[in-house]
Amino acid sequence: MKKIKFLFITFFTAIVIVGCGAYSFTGGNTGDAKTIQIDFFPNQASLVEPQLSQKFTQDLQDLFTRQTNLTLVPRNGDLYLSGEITGYRITPMSATAQQTAAQNRLQITFNVRFVNKLNEKDDFEKSFSFYSDYGATEQLIGGVLDGALEEIIERVTQDIFNASVAKW
């Protein structure tokens, strides 16, 4: 009797999932798209961090291939992401009693173009930006730089994912 109940529940669950259409647990809706092309994002900012372009492009490609069923292609993708890094700024954020910076902020801005060849109303071009704060006594090198870039890239790639396929 338990075996029959288990089979019935499994069968019913499968019918409901298939009947409701494909569902992505990551929130990404790629529609009928099967492929995505993500071009290299060159650094056009006035200050250039050598590893930024490669790391950002790779992390963006990884996010889309991990969280969707899309295949990454070098050209003619159903979905297409391109753009450039347009800003890389370091600014003092808070002051001490001696009127020196207590904290600095690294802010990076990315211009992104998204094209959906199957549904043109989803196309956009917009700017995405995020920042990371670090102590003024720290230099933006080594682990401090790596941590700041990781924080910024993780946030911006997720924002791009949400704007393009999650529709948030």
Score class of each variant (00 low, 15 high):
I36Q: 06
T137M: 11
F161E: 00
I90G: 01
G135H: 07
V73H: 09
R75Y: 04
D39R: 13
V16N: 03
T157Y: 03
Q103D: 12
F8N: 06
F114V: 11
K167D: 15
S132G: 03
D32C: 00
D159N: 11
D62I: 12
E84D: 10
P50V: 01
T96L: 06
Y88A: 00
V144Y: 07
S94D: 14
I90E: 15
V16K: 00
D39P: 03
G19V: 14
E49T: 09
R105A: 10
Q58I: 13
E150L: 11
N69I: 06
E151Y: 05
A97Y: 14
G83W: 06
T57C: 09
F25P: 00
V73W: 09
A148H: 09
K167T: 10
N76P: 02
N43E: 06
T30M: 12
T137W: 10
Q61K: 15
Q61E: 15
I9N: 01
P74A: 00
T109K: 04
F124L: 07
I15T: 13
D123T: 08
I141H: 04
N162W: 00
A148E: 08
T10D: 06
K34R: 10
A14I: 15
S24T: 09
E138M: 02
S164D: 03
A22R: 11
S129L: 03
G21K: 03
Q103L: 06
R105E: 15
L47G: 00
Y23N: 10
C20H: 00
D59V: 12
F8S: 07
K3V: 13
G28E: 10
R75C: 01
N162D: 14
P74S: 11
D122I: 01
L106I: 08
L63N: 08
I85Y: 14
P42R: 09
D32K: 10
N43W: 11
N162Y: 00
K2L: 15
G87V: 02
